[in-house]
């Protein structure tokens, strides 16, 4: 019998042991990266959600420069908690657009008056159809859209103060 054939089982077994050990000692992370990363934004055209900001269409997000797209709603408490972080991102030079989910213009106006308005454009997604197309399951969520209109990152849940540098780094890294 050939030597290589005799030792092959042991070699295969050692490879499996290595794999098991790696799996066992790898820190357990339950973060699942969005399948939408790298995909182009779904096409949409939304009416304006607020009185003093223009409406939003998907084509307006492909401007050659990466932008943030924030999904929020005036009825959402974590969105209010997130507002200072969005202000900080805006102050650091990030361009932010938004989609308001299942909302009414008067409520959005009141929300922005109270918590600040870092947004360039705000679209109204009255029936969550764009939200579903984006693969977003709740509010708030924030996407980084690259210059060609593709999704570079999906942040699920509110942006905390210690997430801000990470988001800025990712935004800088996106082209």
């Amino acid at each position: 019998m050939r030597t290589i054939l005799i030792w092959l089982p042991l070699a295969l077994f050692l490879a499996f042991i290595g794999l098991f050990a790696a799996g066992l000692f790898q820190p357990d992370d339950h973060i699942i990266n969005s399948k939408l990363v790298g995909q182009p934004l779904p096409a949409f055209v939304l009416p304006a959600a607020a009185s003093d900001r223009p409406a939003l269409a998907s084509t307006q997000l492909a401007t050659g420069k990466p932008r943030l797209l924030n999904i929020f709603a005036s009825w959402c408490v974590p969105c209010a908690a997130e507002a200072p972080q969005l202000e900080a991102l805006r102050a650091a030079g990030a361009d932010i657009d938004a989609i308001a989910i299942r909302d009414a213009r008067a409520d959005v106006d009141a929300f922005l008056a109270r918590y600040g308005n870092p947004y360039a454009r705000i679209g109204l997604d009255a029936r969550s159809s764009v939200q579903i197309a984006l693969g977003s399951s709740g509010v708030p969520e924030t996407f980084i859209i690259d210059g060609r209109g593709r999704i570079a990152y999906q942040h699920i849940g509110d942006i905390r103060a210690d997430d801000v540098p990470m988001i800025l780094d990712r935004l800088k890294a996106t082209r």
Binding site: M1, I6, W7, P9, L10, F13, F20, A21, L24
Partner: peptide
């Protein structure tokens, strides 16, 4: 329980690794 997992992994490595090494050494 990962700790127990590593214990079984060590046993697996010793016994099966040992048996396969014995196989390679003696099968001729």
């Amino acid at each position: 329980d990962p700790e127990r997992g590593s214990f079984i992994l060590v046993l697996l490595a010793i016994y099966i690794g040992g048996a396969l090494a014995l196989f390679g050494w003696r099968i001729r």
